[in-house]
Write a protein that binds this DNA or RNA. Structure first.
Lengths: 294, 294
DNA sequence: CTCGACCGATACCCTGGTGATATGGATCAT
DNA sequence: ATGATCCATATCACCAGGGTATCGGTCGAG
């Protein structure tokens, strides 16, 4: 009848995600027997069966699924408490801005120049790392490209531009003026979309997503094509790579996002500054120089 | 650099709220020295000073205030995980409805009669207990009277009616047909409003709020007056107590509320049922029988 | 059908985290 | 000056929580 400890939740989440006590124990850096015991004690404590163990596999009960969902939320909240507190204790207060390098549509220098409320610390994370950083309190505000999971966040759009396809300049499709998604079907590497659960096994090392240089190398030799917002295309314009509009491709919106219940004046001022800078920036309405470079 | 445990957060919240290690330890059912050590270790772990100890008082640093806020949220999320899981493990699924007895405007029987998705378990709590029950997962849905703290909740209004003042029939003010708030200033017991932090010491035992019978006894002998929604007045109409409208008193709205991110079909159906029942119920537009009983 | 591989549970041991007691040192009220 | 108050330190004890060895049940290969 005692209180739950985060250790119990971490253990359960590991087992539930791995569906395997041995791997979960390995991931947690411990042996399997104490983990089994911890899960059994947790079930006793809650008075609920969480897992169905056949000697061959482990499956979640409905109650177990509930706990998995809720425990993720709770662990996130605990991590947030720690991260926010660590940050609040720094003697030099700062605004922590999470973004992916080159995904700022060129606005970043102007925003940083115009924002003088606090010093800004940049957290340059890879693809999809901005969202968790906002959620667990490592970042105060983030620049992200739509679409993203907006639950728990407030956001304001900054600037919108078309998405283009990047392909080898030598690609036969590059000769066409108009492309459709169907023309490009099957040409994308599986990394093209965020890693989902049940991520299908890619042909080679799935652990490390490709960085920009790697991606553009593959594009240049015709191994893949890539969808990307116009501001990224602009930054990576080079001979050997052609950018073309695609009819059905939704435009991308660069967005500033922050935790929903943030009442920080520094964040609010940053958002206003970013919006003002975005308004003063020319929209992406002329693709001619990019699609037809000299 | 390890993970935070809820035990550490509970300890810190106790100390921060009591501003006193001894009382906090007592509240936690432990001795003071291990509590002091736990807080010191927590500060080491976070690398942040949380409390300023003079040998006379304990005060929060800004980082400590941050942790207090965040830890409350995190502890709530952990409690929610446990409560929701316990509930999901019950073999008889049920909808848990939190409300205060008599605060249903007479809708409850009709709602329960019309709602057939799940059996309904009533959680009859005292004043202000509905909100925490929703937040920590003990209840799926609640009936509450506006105003209440809507953060983290979704809600739909059911029925609106005026608030009245209840006073002794013998009270000189009962002879008047029109009352204003100023006429009643200072006549309310301090229990009239929810307990805030820094709750001023009431004249007698502050621990247990008064129940309805106690309140109406005090009203009947002229010791206090009371503001209450018309549906409560209706239920407690009796000789010896007079109900009068008060000009500036905002009307009350009986509301059905549920956790914001609930995607439960059972809750959604309950809300629809409650709204339909409320629409079919006569509004409170004729106060004559209540104010001028036979 | 049999045997080996796999996987979770059980039994048992041991260490360190967590709690208790005793006491010190600092501050404030009288 | 002296006692009261209150947090920190020192020290001890216990068991919660982690490790190793092993068991028992299930599935698949041959």
């Amino acid at each position: 009848m005692d209180h739950l400890e985060t250790r119990q939740l971490r253990y359960f989440v590991a087992v539930a995600e791995e569906q395997h006590f041995g791997r979960a124990a390995q991931r947690l850096g411990m042996a399997q027997p104490p983990l089994s015991r911890a899960i059994r004690d947790l079930e006793r404590q809650l008075g609920v069966q969480l897992l169905v163990r056949t000697s061959r596999r482990v499956a979640l009960t409905p109650a177990g699924q509930t706990l998995l969902d809720e425990a993720r939320i709770a662990l996130d909240a605990v991590a947030t408490a720690g991260n926010r507190t660590r940050h609040a204790g720094q003697d030099v207060p700062a605004l922590r801005l999470a973004l992916k390098a080159d995904h700022d549509a060129g606005l970043l220098p102007k925003i940083l120049d115009a924002y003088d409320v606090l010093p800004v610390r940049l957290l340059l994370g890879g693809y999809g790392e901005q969202l968790p950083a906002l959620h667990d309190g490592r970042a105060d505000v983030a620049l992200m490209t739509t679409p993203f999971d907006e639950r728990g966040l407030d956001s304001e759009p900054l600037i919108t531009g078309p998405r283009l396809v990047a392909m080898a300049a030598s690609d036969p499709l590059a000769a066409r003026t108009s492309l459709r998604l169907a023309d490009l079907a099957g040409r994308l590497l599986p990394y093209g979309t965020p890693a989902e659960k049940g991520f299908p096994k890619p042909p080679f090392d799935p652990h490390e997503p490709l960085d920009h240089s790697q991606i553009f190398s593959l594009i240049e030799v015709g191994s893949t094509v890539w969808y990307l917002p116009v501001w990224l295309a602009e930054r990576f314009a080079r001979p050997g790579i052609a950018y073309r509009p695609v009819e059905e491709l939704e435009p991308a919106t660069l967005t500033v996002a922050w935790p929903a219940r943030s009442r920080s004046a520094a964040v609010a001022a940053f958002v206003r500054t970013a919006q003002r800078v975005a308004r003063e920036t020319a929209p992406y309405d002329n693709l001619f120089p990019l699609v037809h470079p000299v």
